[in-house]
Each structure stands twice: as C-alpha cells, then as structure tokens.
Design a protein around this nucleic acid. Sequence first.
DNA 1: CGCCGAGTTGAACTGAATCAAGAAACGTGG
DNA 2: CCACGTTTCTTGATTCAGTTCAACTCGGCG
Lengths: 203, 203
Amino acid sequence: MSLEMNMKNHGYAILRNNIENTINLKINDEEFHAICSKMSPKILKKNKLFIQEGQYSDEVHFITKGACYAFDVDDKGDKHTFQFSIEEHWIGDLYSFFSGNLGIYNAETIEDTNFLVIKRKDFEKLCDDYPIFDRFFRILIQNAFVALQYRLVKSQTESAADRYKAFLKKTPHLLQRIPQYLIASYLGIKPQSLSRIKKDVLK
Amino acid sequence: MSLEMNMKNHGYAILRNNIENTINLKINDEEFHAICSKMSPKILKKNKLFIQEGQYSDEVHFITKGACYAFDVDDKGDKHTFQFSIEEHWIGDLYSFFSGNLGIYNAETIEDTNFLVIKRKDFEKLCDDYPIFDRFFRILIQNAFVALQYRLVKSQTESAADRYKAFLKKTPHLLQRIPQYLIASYLGIKPQSLSRIKKDVLK
DNA sequence: CGCCGAGTTGAACTGAATCAAGAAACGTGG
DNA sequence: CCACGTTTCTTGATTCAGTTCAACTCGGCG
C-alpha cells in the first residue's frame, strides 16, 4: 500500500487526533507524514492472538477500530487480563518492546480489529529525528503510568465488589463489548465470583 | 544556596549519572546546568511526611541519600505502601504532579533523606527548552511503567509467599533498611501474615 | 529501668477459589 | 432458518489463603 493511499485511510486521522490531544498541540504536516511513513496498517479477525509470550515483540499497536486485551498466563494455565484496549488506544508487550528481550505477555483481539503498527527501530528513529515524538510518548506513558498506579493501589485496597462497581462507573461502554469472564479476569477474580457479585450489586 | 554551591554538592553528580545512565548518552554542561538550576536541595529527618493526600503536590523528588515510601490510606485508615525509593530514585504523587489536581497519595521518609526537588512549572519549562529532558523523562517513566505493570500482574497471579520470595530475590538490600510491617504492606498483606510466611519460607 | 512500637503466635472468621452441575447464549453447518 | 454442539454464565456446597482479634515477647530508646 503506498503512503498516499495510507494517508487517506481513516486510521491515520484518528492517530493524528490522538497525538494532538495527548500533547495538547498541533503537529505539522512534516511530523505527521514522518510518523505515518513508519506505521503500517494491520487487520485481524476476532479471537486472533497477535502478541505471544516467549516471542520477541518489537512493535506496538495503535487501534483504529476494534477491541483487544492483554494477558498473562500463570503456572496453572490460567489467564490474567491486565489491559483492555479499544479505538485510540495503544497496546503492546512494552517489556519486550523497550528491553529487546523475549516477550512475557500475550494479546488477542476480541472483535475484528484494525491497527497501525510501529517497529521499535522506527520508533527510535522517529524520536531521534523529531523531538515532538519524545514529548508525545512521554505524555502518553505518563498518563498510562498514573492510571496503572491507581489500579495497583485499588487492587490492594478495594474488595472485588468495589472494584467491579468502579469498573462499571468508569468504563460502562466496555460491558457491551467484552465477555464477562475477561472482566472477571481483569478484576482479579474468577467468573463464578463475578457472577455472584453482580447478583449482590442488584440488591 | 547559590547555584555554584549547589553544583559542588555531591547530589547533583548523582543526578547527572542517573540521567546519563537512563538515556544512555552524555548530556552537555549547558543541559546539566539547566536542570541543576531548576532543582533545589531538601533535607528531611526520618519519619517525616513530605507528600500528603488532599494537598497539591507540584514537585517530584529525586533522592540523593536515604529512603522513603509512598502509600495510600484506605477507608479503614489502613496504609498501603506501593513504592519504596532509595538513592537515585524518583518519588512523587505523579497523579497530582501531572494533572494539577489535589494529591491522592502520601509519602514519608524512612531514614534521614536528602532530595533534589523540581517544580512542575520548571519541569515543563525544562522539557520545552531542552528536548533531551523529554527523552530522559520518557525513558525514566517507560522503565517505571514496565516495572509497575509487572508488579500488577504478579500481584494477581502469585501467592503472598511467592511475592515475598520474589521481593527477597530482587531487592535483598531493602530488607535491612525497611521495617517488616512496611514490606507486608507493600506485598499487600498484614504484618501477621508476613510473619507466618517467613516462618514457612525457612523450612 | 520502664515503656512503647515491632514482631510473633494462636484461634476463629471471611471473601474468594474450587469443584461440580445445570441453564442460557452463540455460531456454524446443514 | 433451525438444530446441535460449544462456550459462557449461573448457582450450590465445600475449601483455603489471608484477616481479624487477642495475647505475649523482644529490643531499642528516653
């Protein structure tokens, strides 16, 4: 696919929005072309595993349409979801991406999903050539860090029922798109427990 | 204290090291002076609360000597430690710092501690004037993010005993400097439970 | 020397997991 | 468009990791 064709793809407009909203600043066309030239489209059907533990993960994914989740598998083979991502969100095995080591996480689509993908080398080149992208990724990850820290704290201080209520309040739109057993896994409990909690919440 | 005097202070050399190790690149003297001119020394005795929930927290702290911890207080009044920081580490209420909202976390010294402190406005100015600091803070927070994500996952997948063993293995040097009840809090359990776990681990 | 906070140990309790069995929803092919 | 098999969700009974409450020991500091 040529760059010109890519540029017309709606996904790139979503990306530009995401960047400009994040840094609270317009980027110029040169900068926009620079990042577009480094990001390639990827389309996957639902239930496709696209990041796999034990493999090098040298790209991060920006979602322009669809939904996915990232998870860890424990010794018993149980999945533990730690992130849901929908349109305008980034997803990847950042441990592997930043360190260059073998990946430790997995990610799978929940719906048919369209991505824009950037490789580590291209990411680094982009930041070297255009400091605005150091800024962008700094703020992007700052926000992610703050949200994650909040989640870690709440996972220690709140009961499963309270975590579920908080999830309902904060991301009600995800309820329609994500199966219950993945939400349970995200909350750190078993599907049976979530089922019981839902029953209690109604009362 | 004049800038010249500050520059001779050992703490600033530690900071330069921290920056250069993080970005894997030397910074020039102009850049170094720029950040030094924005960071002020702060010295606290042990057991001093220096970040408080409900107050604006518009600075982040770089530790040049000593040890502290950050924690959340739940409805019951119980403390939940989510971070230990010693020399060459940064600590702050990043939620408040980045958002400008009222703080939601607390931090206290565990030992007599020396900091270098930077205000949000100065931090932003620094990044605007010298893109290298966007780079530095991007990588700093990238690393913090990856470590935090790992911790969140492990807090969901591992038993308290396994989390304790991992803590022992990863940060044995902290055992000597941090009271048991704070380590318990960091692991997400009660001091009584940690006491029992330690007994089991010996066997 | 005495006290107070930190650490240990015991017994009873509880939130969530586990094991197990049905019921409902879903998608796939005829 | 319906039938069937598979996956998801629910509900019940039991178990278990970690909490709670309480008593006691130890060690450092004033």
